[in-house]
């Protein structure tokens, strides 16, 4: 088991945001977490990446308990969280943003190789290399956010709503990129509100409702599930 999340309970003060969530991610998979606004998707990712502490429950990566590990050490273990809303460092240049993604990497040559690869996958970033991150368009910022995440050479990528606020053509592009990243051996935990797209590229999926997992299954199963169809696919 690559990533194993067991019985997470997370609170914001008195708000019980995650009420006993368990799921897992196998090597090489794309697993998606779908759910409405406020269901607890971002809270789940933040807990896995160490930004939030669960009151109870565990997060294990290849068997190692990450539950009380600081976020920066989790990155070193090969798991990277690309947050909701891109969170580009606006006053840093595109190149500096990418360098920050490689913060935990020591090998200069390897960092340069990864930077070249990022520019190859996202040619638009290369043109804007010395531009400030805050001046990029939404789609470019999302590419930068993903490229920045990849600079750490993760084995597990946590993506929080990468398609949010993007034009349909860009959404297609982003999902194609996610599939390509996965094809190179990176396991992906994908949080999405765009259930149709997410379920069509995912191996498996979980449906989150107000802090609990209501349904799970393969992408295909969930796409065909009548409850999913009526609540998330607009049928």
């Amino acid at each position: 088991m690559l990533l194993e999340v067991k019985d997470l309970n997370v609170y914001y003060g008195a708000i019980h945001a995650l009420q006993g969530i368990s799921f897992d991610l196998e090597e090489g998979e794309i697993v998606t977490l779908i759910g409405a606004n406020g269901a607890g998707k971002s809270t789940t990712l933040k807990t896995i990446s160490g930004l939030l502490r669960p009151r109870t429950g565990t997060v294990r990566l290849r068997g190692e308990d990450l539950t009380s590990m600081p976020a920066q050490n989790i990155v070193k273990r090969g798991m990277v969280h690309v947050p909701e809303g891109r969170k580009i460092f606006a006053p840093l240049t595109v190149q500096e943003n990418l360098e920050m993604g490689a913060y935990t990497r020591k090998d200069k040559a390897e960092i340069e190789g990864n930077m070249a690869r990022a520019f190859k996958s996202f040619p638009r970033l290369k043109e804007r290399m010395n531009q400030l991150g805050g001046t990029l368009s939404g789609g470019e910022q999302q590419m930068l956010a993903i490229g920045r995440g990849l600079m750490a050479q993760p084995k597990v990528l946590l993506l929080d709503e990468p398609s949010m606020g993007l034009a349909p053509i860009l959404v297609e592009e982003i999902f194609a990129i996610i599939k390509a990243i996965n094809a190179e051996g990176v396991s992906v935990l994908l949080v999405e509100q765009n259930a149709l797209m997410a379920l069509s590229i995912a191996h498996r999926g979980y449906v989150l409702e107000t802090g609990t997992i209501m349904l799970s299954g393969t992408g295909q199963e969930l796409l065909e599930n009548p409850r999913v169809q009526s609540a998330y696919l607009g049928h």
């Binding site: 990446s49 930004l51 976020a71 947050p83 500096e96 913060y103």
Partner: peptide, 18 residues
């Protein structure tokens, strides 16, 4: 650069491993 990144957004800086 990590100082500048942290001054903009501490949570995201931590996600970089800073």
């Amino acid at each position: 650069k990590a100082m500048r990144a942290s001054s903009v957004d501490k949570a995201t800086a931590r996600l970089m491993g800073i």
